[in-house]
Amino acid sequence: LDMDCLPYGWEEAYTADGIKYFINHVTQTTSWIHPVMSVLNLSRSE
């Protein structure tokens, strides 16, 4: 699993305190969880 590779439309950013988060420019949303990890967690719960 390549954690450096973000899906299309996603960008890694940091808060003023240096905390990493992710921006989805396609849906105009943000997430604290890496988008690949959130997809993996969803697929495990099914």
Rank of each mutant, 00 (worst) to 15 (best):
N24W: 07
V39H: 11
T30N: 05
W32Q: 02
T29R: 07
T27E: 06
T15H: 01
N24H: 10
P35C: 00
K20Q: 01
D4Q: 07
W32G: 06
A16H: 10
I23Q: 03
G9N: 02
L42T: 13
A16K: 14
K20R: 11
T27K: 12
I33M: 12
W10Y: 04
V26M: 10
E12S: 07
D2P: 00
D2C: 05
C5D: 15
V39D: 15
L6F: 07
V36L: 13
L1M: 14
V26K: 10
S38P: 12
E11C: 02
Y14N: 00
L40T: 10
E46D: 11
R44W: 08
W32A: 04
Y8D: 15
I19P: 04
H25Y: 00
E11F: 07
E12N: 04
Y8K: 14
C5S: 14
L42S: 14
G18I: 08
S43Q: 04
E46W: 00
A13T: 08
N24R: 02
G18F: 03
T27H: 14
H25S: 13
N41H: 06
T30S: 15
K20L: 03
H25F: 08
V39I: 07
V26G: 13
L42W: 10
Y8M: 10
M37I: 09
M3V: 13
T27D: 12
H34T: 01
K20G: 02
S45G: 14
A13S: 08
M37Q: 15
F22I: 05
D4T: 08
I19D: 15
I19V: 13
P35W: 04
A16W: 01
F22Q: 03
W32E: 06
A13Y: 01
I33Y: 11
G9H: 02
I19R: 15
G18W: 08
I19H: 15
I23C: 01
D4N: 12
I33P: 01
I23R: 11
N24Y: 06
G18K: 09
D4P: 08
W32R: 09
F22S: 02
V39M: 11
I23A: 04
L6N: 09
C5L: 09
T27P: 04
V39W: 07
P7I: 00
D17L: 03
A13E: 01
E11D: 08
D17K: 07
D17N: 07
T30A: 06
M3L: 12
T30M: 01
H34D: 07
